[in-house]
Amino acid sequence: MTQVQPTQKVYGAWQQIPVTPSRQMTVDAQQMAAHWRRCSLSSDFWAQYMSLFIPTRVTEEYLGRGEVEQVLAYLLNELFENCAKFSNGSHQLVRYVAWSQDDSMLFQVTNHILPEGQAPFAKLIDEMLNNDPHELYFQRLEENVELDLDGSGLGYLTLIKDFGVQFSFRFRPQENGSTAVDVQAKVSLQQE
């Protein structure tokens, strides 16, 4: 299928999926930021929608429908909040796509940033994907207090370490001068 373009930069185990499902949504990042509870509303809707793929009864090795819904609500809210907070430049479209796979669900959320935003975000991603998430999580919390910082990356780290979510990231420079950021999140439907 589609090859990764040379100008693209990928971090983590990116999945190339040829078929785009009908489960998708586009929203405006500025609107999400201005009407903040739309992040919460959208995440809760899609969490409930996707959790209906889960049978009402599952065997012990699988997450129940309610558990899946709660994980997805947490995950998608963090992703939508990030799009609302960090989209930058004239291209404000946010795109959400979801795939139901055998033992997992895959989500992809795309937003756009200015090209100069890529390097600092890529540094954060590198640190997240190449360190022990438990150690990094507690280190970040302590640093945030010492240095009076906001919790950058804490949402991703919580999802990785507490919920086993696997993230991958792709940066795609656009002709309109912006850079598209695709975040993929894979959620296992099996108990850890």
């Binding site: 919460s40 609500a73 947490y74 809210n77 963090e78 909040e81 919390l141 945030n144 207090v145 906001d150 919790g151 804490l154 949402g155 919580t158």
Partner: peptide, 13 residues
């Protein structure tokens, strides 16, 4: 029911 990561950061802090 839900707390986002900014909220978890606040409680942790």
């Amino acid at each position: 029911q839900f707390l986002n990561s900014s909220g978890i950061n606040t409680v942790s802090r």
